[in-house]
Amino acid sequence: MTLPTDDVPPGTQTLARGLSVIRAVADGAHGLREIVESTGLGRSSTHRLAQLLVVTGFLRHDNRGYTLGPALIELGFKALHGNPLPLVARPVLEELSATVLDTVHLAVEDGGSVLYLDKLPGSRGAEMRSRIGYRMPLTRAGVGKALLLDAADRWAGQYAADEAALPPAARRGELDEFLTRMQTYARAGAAMDLEDNEPGIRCVAAPIRDASRAVVGAVSVSATTPYMPDERMRGLIPVVRRAAGRISAALGYQAT
Protein backbone atom coordinates (compact mmCIF):
# COMPACT_ATOMS: atom_id res chain seq x y z
CA MET A 1 0.00 0.00 0.00
CA THR A 2 1.16 3.55 -0.69
CA LEU A 3 1.80 5.83 2.27
CA PRO A 4 -0.40 8.93 2.43
CA THR A 5 1.45 11.96 1.05
CA ASP A 6 1.13 13.84 4.36
CA ASP A 7 2.92 11.00 6.20
CA VAL A 8 6.02 11.01 3.96
CA PRO A 9 8.79 13.41 5.09
CA PRO A 10 10.16 15.65 2.33
CA GLY A 11 12.88 14.04 0.25
CA THR A 12 11.94 10.46 1.17
CA GLN A 13 9.33 9.67 -1.49
CA THR A 14 11.53 7.13 -3.27
CA LEU A 15 12.23 5.30 -0.03
CA ALA A 16 8.51 5.30 0.78
CA ARG A 17 7.71 3.84 -2.64
CA GLY A 18 10.31 1.11 -2.17
CA LEU A 19 8.90 0.23 1.22
CA SER A 20 5.40 0.08 -0.25
CA VAL A 21 6.66 -2.43 -2.84
CA ILE A 22 8.15 -4.60 -0.09
CA ARG A 23 4.90 -4.41 1.88
CA ALA A 24 2.86 -5.34 -1.19
CA VAL A 25 5.00 -8.45 -1.76
CA ALA A 26 4.77 -9.34 1.92
CA ASP A 27 0.98 -9.11 1.63
CA GLY A 28 0.90 -11.58 -1.26
CA ALA A 29 1.46 -9.54 -4.45
CA HIS A 30 3.93 -11.71 -6.39
CA GLY A 31 3.52 -10.42 -9.95
CA LEU A 32 4.45 -6.96 -11.23
CA ARG A 33 0.83 -6.21 -12.12
CA GLU A 34 -0.31 -7.16 -8.61
CA ILE A 35 2.33 -4.93 -7.04
CA VAL A 36 1.30 -2.02 -9.24
CA GLU A 37 -2.36 -2.51 -8.28
CA SER A 38 -1.49 -2.76 -4.59
CA THR A 39 0.81 0.26 -4.43
CA GLY A 40 -0.79 2.55 -6.99
CA LEU A 41 2.66 3.25 -8.46
CA GLY A 42 3.42 3.39 -12.18
CA ARG A 43 4.50 0.18 -13.87
CA SER A 44 7.95 1.43 -14.92
CA SER A 45 8.68 2.91 -11.48
CA THR A 46 7.54 -0.29 -9.80
CA HIS A 47 9.74 -2.38 -12.08
CA ARG A 48 12.82 -0.24 -11.39
CA LEU A 49 12.25 -0.35 -7.64
CA ALA A 50 11.66 -4.10 -7.69
CA GLN A 51 14.90 -4.63 -9.67
CA LEU A 52 16.86 -2.60 -7.10
CA LEU A 53 15.27 -4.51 -4.22
CA VAL A 54 16.22 -7.82 -5.85
CA VAL A 55 19.84 -6.69 -6.36
CA THR A 56 20.10 -5.59 -2.70
CA GLY A 57 18.51 -8.80 -1.40
CA PHE A 58 15.29 -7.32 -0.06
CA LEU A 59 13.27 -9.19 -2.69
CA ARG A 60 13.80 -12.42 -4.57
CA HIS A 61 12.56 -13.08 -8.12
CA ASP A 62 12.06 -16.51 -9.69
CA ASN A 63 9.40 -18.44 -11.60
CA ARG A 64 6.96 -17.82 -8.75
CA GLY A 65 7.35 -14.08 -9.12
CA TYR A 66 8.54 -11.74 -6.35
CA THR A 67 8.98 -12.96 -2.78
CA LEU A 68 10.71 -11.53 0.28
CA GLY A 69 14.48 -11.78 0.09
CA PRO A 70 17.26 -12.97 2.40
CA ALA A 71 18.14 -9.46 3.58
CA LEU A 72 14.70 -9.15 5.16
CA ILE A 73 15.04 -12.55 6.81
CA GLU A 74 18.39 -11.50 8.29
CA LEU A 75 16.99 -8.19 9.53
CA GLY A 76 13.91 -9.92 10.88
CA PHE A 77 16.00 -12.24 13.04
CA LYS A 78 18.07 -9.31 14.27
CA ALA A 79 14.92 -7.39 15.17
CA LEU A 80 13.48 -10.42 16.94
CA HIS A 81 16.62 -10.99 19.00
CA GLY A 82 16.87 -7.27 19.75
CA ASN A 83 13.68 -7.66 21.78
CA PRO A 84 14.41 -9.39 25.12
CA LEU A 85 10.89 -10.80 25.42
CA PRO A 86 11.23 -13.79 23.03
CA LEU A 87 14.58 -14.79 24.57
CA VAL A 88 13.34 -14.48 28.13
CA ALA A 89 10.07 -16.24 27.36
CA ARG A 90 11.35 -19.19 25.33
CA PRO A 91 12.25 -21.57 28.21
CA VAL A 92 8.90 -20.93 29.86
CA LEU A 93 7.05 -21.45 26.58
CA GLU A 94 8.85 -24.76 26.00
CA GLU A 95 7.96 -25.99 29.46
CA LEU A 96 4.35 -24.90 29.04
CA SER A 97 4.15 -26.60 25.64
CA ALA A 98 5.46 -29.87 27.04
CA THR A 99 2.90 -29.71 29.85
CA VAL A 100 -0.26 -28.89 27.90
CA LEU A 101 0.59 -30.61 24.56
CA ASP A 102 -1.23 -27.81 22.71
CA THR A 103 -0.05 -24.83 20.66
CA VAL A 104 1.62 -22.07 22.66
CA HIS A 105 1.89 -18.50 21.39
CA LEU A 106 3.83 -15.42 22.43
CA ALA A 107 2.56 -12.10 21.09
CA VAL A 108 2.82 -8.34 21.50
CA GLU A 109 0.76 -5.38 20.36
CA ASP A 110 2.24 -3.58 17.37
CA GLY A 111 0.50 -0.84 15.43
CA GLY A 112 -2.87 -1.59 16.96
CA SER A 113 -2.83 -5.30 16.12
CA VAL A 114 -1.52 -8.58 17.50
CA LEU A 115 1.96 -9.55 16.29
CA TYR A 116 3.05 -13.13 16.98
CA LEU A 117 6.68 -13.37 18.13
CA ASP A 118 6.83 -17.11 18.81
CA LYS A 119 4.80 -20.25 18.25
CA LEU A 120 5.31 -23.77 19.54
CA PRO A 121 2.90 -26.09 17.66
CA GLY A 122 0.90 -28.60 19.64
CA SER A 123 1.24 -32.36 19.25
CA ARG A 124 -2.46 -33.02 18.67
CA GLY A 125 -5.37 -31.59 16.74
CA ALA A 126 -5.32 -29.56 13.53
CA GLU A 127 -2.62 -27.02 12.69
CA MET A 128 -3.79 -23.42 13.03
CA ARG A 129 -2.98 -20.58 10.64
CA SER A 130 -0.97 -18.44 13.08
CA ARG A 131 2.78 -18.13 12.53
CA ILE A 132 5.67 -15.96 13.70
CA GLY A 133 5.22 -12.50 12.19
CA TYR A 134 1.49 -13.03 11.63
CA ARG A 135 -0.94 -10.25 12.60
CA MET A 136 -4.50 -10.46 13.87
CA PRO A 137 -7.11 -7.99 15.18
CA LEU A 138 -6.63 -7.38 18.90
CA THR A 139 -10.25 -8.00 19.81
CA ARG A 140 -10.50 -11.32 17.95
CA ALA A 141 -7.43 -13.15 19.24
CA GLY A 142 -7.11 -14.45 22.79
CA VAL A 143 -3.66 -12.91 23.15
CA GLY A 144 -5.10 -9.65 21.83
CA LYS A 145 -7.73 -9.55 24.54
CA ALA A 146 -5.03 -10.30 27.12
CA LEU A 147 -2.96 -7.39 25.79
CA LEU A 148 -5.97 -5.12 26.34
CA LEU A 149 -6.88 -6.27 29.87
CA ASP A 150 -5.48 -3.16 31.58
CA ALA A 151 -6.91 -0.73 28.99
CA ALA A 152 -10.67 -0.64 29.60
CA ASP A 153 -10.81 2.80 28.03
CA ARG A 154 -9.74 1.26 24.70
CA TRP A 155 -12.10 -1.72 24.57
CA ALA A 156 -15.04 -0.14 22.75
CA GLY A 157 -12.95 1.89 20.30
CA GLN A 158 -10.63 -1.00 19.44
CA TYR A 159 -13.59 -3.33 18.91
CA ALA A 160 -15.22 -0.84 16.54
CA ALA A 161 -11.95 -0.34 14.61
CA ASP A 162 -11.35 -4.08 14.27
CA GLU A 163 -14.90 -4.73 13.09
CA ALA A 164 -14.73 -1.92 10.54
CA ALA A 165 -11.54 -3.41 9.05
CA LEU A 166 -13.17 -6.81 8.48
CA PRO A 167 -15.31 -7.81 5.48
CA PRO A 168 -19.04 -7.25 6.20
CA ALA A 169 -19.74 -10.99 6.34
CA ALA A 170 -17.14 -11.44 9.11
CA ARG A 171 -18.41 -8.66 11.37
CA ARG A 172 -20.28 -9.49 14.57
CA GLY A 173 -21.49 -6.16 15.86
CA GLU A 174 -21.85 -7.49 19.41
CA LEU A 175 -20.11 -4.74 21.36
CA ASP A 176 -22.08 -5.19 24.60
CA GLU A 177 -21.24 -8.89 24.70
CA PHE A 178 -17.58 -8.15 24.03
CA LEU A 179 -17.41 -5.55 26.82
CA THR A 180 -19.07 -7.95 29.27
CA ARG A 181 -16.56 -10.65 28.40
CA MET A 182 -13.63 -8.25 28.80
CA GLN A 183 -14.84 -7.21 32.24
CA THR A 184 -14.95 -10.88 33.24
CA TYR A 185 -11.50 -11.51 31.80
CA ALA A 186 -10.02 -8.48 33.56
CA ARG A 187 -11.26 -9.82 36.90
CA ALA A 188 -9.82 -13.28 36.14
CA GLY A 189 -6.50 -11.92 34.90
CA ALA A 190 -6.79 -14.04 31.74
CA ALA A 191 -8.70 -13.88 28.46
CA MET A 192 -10.29 -16.45 26.20
CA ASP A 193 -10.81 -16.91 22.49
CA LEU A 194 -14.09 -18.78 21.96
CA GLU A 195 -13.64 -19.36 18.22
CA ASP A 196 -13.67 -15.57 17.74
CA ASN A 197 -10.61 -15.66 15.53
CA GLU A 198 -10.68 -19.02 13.76
CA PRO A 199 -13.55 -21.55 13.59
CA GLY A 200 -12.88 -24.59 15.73
CA ILE A 201 -10.01 -22.98 17.69
CA ARG A 202 -10.18 -21.93 21.32
CA CYS A 203 -7.50 -20.49 23.56
CA VAL A 204 -6.68 -19.15 27.02
CA ALA A 205 -4.27 -16.20 27.27
CA ALA A 206 -2.67 -14.10 30.00
CA PRO A 207 -0.77 -10.78 29.92
CA ILE A 208 2.96 -10.37 30.50
CA ARG A 209 4.13 -7.27 32.39
CA ASP A 210 7.51 -5.63 32.81
CA ALA A 211 9.14 -3.77 35.69
CA SER A 212 6.93 -0.73 35.06
CA ARG A 213 3.84 -2.97 35.46
CA ALA A 214 2.82 -2.23 31.86
CA VAL A 215 1.47 -5.06 29.70
CA VAL A 216 4.23 -5.79 27.16
CA GLY A 217 3.11 -9.13 25.78
CA ALA A 218 0.82 -12.10 26.18
CA VAL A 219 1.11 -15.87 26.22
CA SER A 220 -1.61 -18.31 25.21
CA VAL A 221 -2.49 -21.99 24.93
CA SER A 222 -4.60 -22.84 21.88
CA ALA A 223 -6.25 -26.04 20.67
CA THR A 224 -9.11 -27.33 18.59
CA THR A 225 -12.53 -27.36 20.25
CA PRO A 226 -12.55 -31.08 21.20
CA TYR A 227 -9.46 -30.49 23.34
CA MET A 228 -10.82 -27.25 24.80
CA PRO A 229 -14.12 -27.90 26.59
CA ASP A 230 -15.25 -25.18 28.99
CA GLU A 231 -14.00 -27.05 32.06
CA ARG A 232 -10.48 -27.44 30.66
CA MET A 233 -10.36 -23.79 29.65
CA ARG A 234 -11.19 -22.76 33.20
CA GLY A 235 -8.51 -25.15 34.47
CA LEU A 236 -5.92 -23.64 32.14
CA ILE A 237 -6.37 -20.12 33.52
CA PRO A 238 -4.00 -20.60 36.50
CA VAL A 239 -1.57 -22.57 34.33
CA VAL A 240 -1.28 -19.84 31.71
CA ARG A 241 -1.22 -17.11 34.34
CA ARG A 242 1.69 -18.82 36.11
CA ALA A 243 3.62 -19.02 32.85
CA ALA A 244 2.95 -15.35 32.13
CA GLY A 245 3.94 -14.51 35.70
CA ARG A 246 7.28 -16.27 35.37
CA ILE A 247 8.07 -14.37 32.18
CA SER A 248 6.97 -11.13 33.82
CA ALA A 249 9.23 -11.77 36.80
CA ALA A 250 12.17 -12.32 34.45
CA LEU A 251 11.42 -8.87 32.96
CA GLY A 252 11.53 -7.28 36.41
CA TYR A 253 7.83 -7.30 37.29
CA GLN A 254 7.06 -7.62 40.98
CA ALA A 255 3.55 -8.70 41.91
CA THR A 256 1.91 -6.92 44.82
Rank of each mutant, 00 (worst) to 15 (best):
Y116F: 12
E198K: 00
H105L: 13
D196W: 00
L117R: 09
L166F: 03
G189V: 02
Q158G: 07
P226T: 03
N197L: 01
L138N: 00
E127T: 15
P238Y: 06
L93I: 04
A169N: 11
L138A: 05
V204Y: 09
G217D: 03
G252D: 06
V104A: 02
L15S: 14
P167I: 11
E231L: 13
H30S: 15
L147R: 10
G217N: 01
F77I: 15
G65F: 10
T14M: 13
A211M: 07
Y116S: 03
Y159I: 03
D62M: 06
S97E: 09
A107V: 06
S123F: 09
V204N: 01
L179R: 12
V92M: 08
G69S: 10
L251H: 00
L138F: 00
R131W: 06
M182L: 03
Y134D: 01
E163V: 04
A243Y: 05
E94F: 00
S123W: 08
L15G: 11
T224N: 13
L32C: 05
R171G: 04
G157Q: 15
S45L: 15
V219L: 10
V55H: 13
G133W: 00
T12R: 14
V221W: 00
T39D: 04
L75K: 12
V92F: 11
L120T: 12
G111Q: 02
A79G: 10
A255I: 00
L96N: 01
Y185A: 07
R140Y: 03
H81F: 14
R129I: 06
T99P: 05
R242N: 13
T12D: 09
F77S: 15
L59I: 04
M128Y: 04
R187C: 04
M233T: 01
Q183V: 12
G235C: 10
